[in-house]
Design a protein around this nucleic acid. Structure first.
Lengths: 338, 338
DNA sequence: CCCCTAGACTACAACGTTGTACTGCACCGC
DNA sequence: GCGGTGCAGTACAACGTTGTAGTCTAGGGG
């Protein structure tokens, strides 16, 4: 049976509240009392009961992280960074997966399963701008990603349009003219796919290159398998291109694999550029040029914003929109100059 | 302000306990009472307070998953599977990372941060057989991995020796004779590295091939970067080999990359075999032959064992050792016959 | 010498649930 | 008509903590 404040109080010969005060570093305690209590705590191996503390204080010290899937390297690395930052702030992380399914994302927001968290870091992929109203929740929340903008909550995201534009310009600057895109989402207006596609088009336009829809391949999921399939379709469809811009790294690596299966040389015949800079991108053959979205900073900002919100819960201030800087990472698959 | 049982009881005109009974599906309730209560619940949007429930019942519905790092694809995919299985069982997962550091692993076992979990799935990499005593904890726990055997808790693991032996035999059968190993741990007796190395040696011996220590490269961490570095050392050291057995996929992919940088053809000059079957292994160039350790089954068994232990906590039965089946997955980097 | 303040500590009542023990009541069999 | 049984519902006391209000003592100022 785990020891309680009661047991410690008995052993130390003080009141239960004094023990509580010692545990919580209340200042007005005589050093000798503190020592006596501490000795009793050590002897009994007392550990505070977090459920009780949480019931009484309304804080559990747990934050929720809601994301599509840990199997997607980007989210795994993001989760890693979130957990590491949470630890620094003294909170612990509960992870829920939604499989990028809109209904499940919405369900999580009102689910009792998440009720014991103090707040949520929420990274939707299925919800869209129309669902912005659903973000009106009565607990602190930080939104990630680019599915929804201008919501009632803090939002940490990156300059998707600019980053995709930079990636595309990078390919153009190295002499490419027919740049295929992998991972577009039909009819999407907002969201990573739409924003990154917009950046691509902006870059083309700026360079005076006409936009050719035949170069743009669509796929809903952003897994390696989808990138591979899209690339097969492009090639088998006889589309000619001298570069590929994959809207995320996983897609791009699937595509990279197929390019080589089909006997195309990378980067000689086709330059390849991804987006996310997952760890894996450094070790593929050829290594993958990509966009570094500042994942570590995203995690750091998201956690500290959330923790701050939880602390100030009484007097909420206006929601913040935080934009994280990106950078272009040139590697072998698309060297700086052709 | 969130509604409580009290509010619902008032609105429905019944006692608070009756509401509790409705929420908990207590059988002896008149249908009309149930309906009345349900209506009140819906109207107020009542959600049970999990801290209170947990304080009263001693169960939080949260399990902890302790692993080295989510950035390691194997653990990310494992976590994915654990969370998915936990959801099926109606529990939620809190993840803690230890960075494979022994001290942090030990700390987690007695940390109050984990105090609100009902039990732990614990996957150590830093602790060793000598630490077996530390697994004597007063909460349900399922151990994963191959650092510690014969402990006082349930253990889900795989046949490492046999799997590594199968992998090595596979290479031998395809005509390879000088098989390098990447990722060995100096002086280790138990643990993935030691067990897999033992399987390697067993297979060599069975085939009458002498063991050559020069072929075995050591590295503590199992990241892509370490695999790459080891491979560079081997090659630069002038060691001759016609196959590589990487003790996990990440290492192996790092090595695969360096092999190709150095102009060696895979599998023509060097056959390459990994271990873990992470998703990525299908899409590399060449695709990676590897061992599938049955990750999904490991997760499924671990979660259901833990949930079962939590339920039966009163009368604990003897700890179980569960061995999961593996399979050899031949791909391009090491085809079935040379 | 008395009042006031601050420090060190304590008693008590919550927080929102659920387990236990209980009260009625209707129905059954003899 | 009486005791037993099973159903429907309730009252009350926990679970372990912390916030609030309080007591008591010592010390300082007037």
């Amino acid at each position: 049976m785990a020891a309680t404040l009661h047991d410690v109080a008995n052993l130390a010969g003080v009141s239960i509240k004094t023990v509580s005060n010692v545990v919580n570093d209340y200042p007005h305690i005589r050093p000798e009392t503190r020592q006596k209590v501490q000795a009793a705590i050590d002897e009994l191996g007392y550990q505070p009961n977090l459920s009780a503390r949480s019931l009484r204080s309304g804080r559990s010290g747990v934050i929720g992280l809601v994301l599509p899937e840990l199997s997607l390297s980007y989210f795994a690395e993001l989760a890693d960074a979130v957990i590491a930052n949470a630890e620094k702030q003294g909170v612990v992380v509960l992870i829920e997966q939604t499989g990028a399914d809109r209904d499940r994302e919405i369900a999580v927001l009102s689910s009792p399963r998440m009720r014991l968290t103090d707040g949520l870091i929420f990274s939707p992929l299925g919800m869209s701008q129309d669902d912005v109203g659903l973000l009106e929740v009565d607990f602190p929340m930080v939104l990630l990603g680019e599915r929804i903008f201008g919501g009632p909550v803090d939002h940490v995201t990156m300059r998707n349009v600019e980053a995709a534009q930079a990636a595309t310009r990078f390919l153009i600057d190295s002499g490419r003219r027919r740049i295929a895109v992998i991972g577009a989402h039909e009819g999407e207006v907002v969201g990573s796919a739409a924003l990154r596609l917009r950046g691509y088009r902006d870059a083309l336009q700026a360079a005076g290159i006409p936009y050719d829809p035949a170069l743009v391949s669509h796929t809903t999921l952003w897994h390696r398998a989808n990138g591979a399939a899209s690339m097969r379709e492009l090639i088998d469809g006889g589309v000619q291109f001298d570069a590929v811009f994959g809207l995320n790294d996983a897609l791009t690596l699937g595509a990279l694999r197929v390019l080589q299966e089909k006997g195309m040389r990378v980067p000689d015949d086709v330059a390849v550029m991804g987006f996310d800079n997952i760890d894996e991108a450094q070790y593929t053959v050829p290594s993958l040029s990509t966009i570094d979205p500042g994942r570590e900073q995203i995690a750091e900002r998201a956690v500290s914003l959330l923790v701050q919100r939880i602390r100030e819960q009484a007097r909420p201030s206006a929601p913040q929109e935080v934009l994280i800087d990106f950078s272009v990472v040139p590697r072998e698959s698309a060297p700086a100059r052709a």
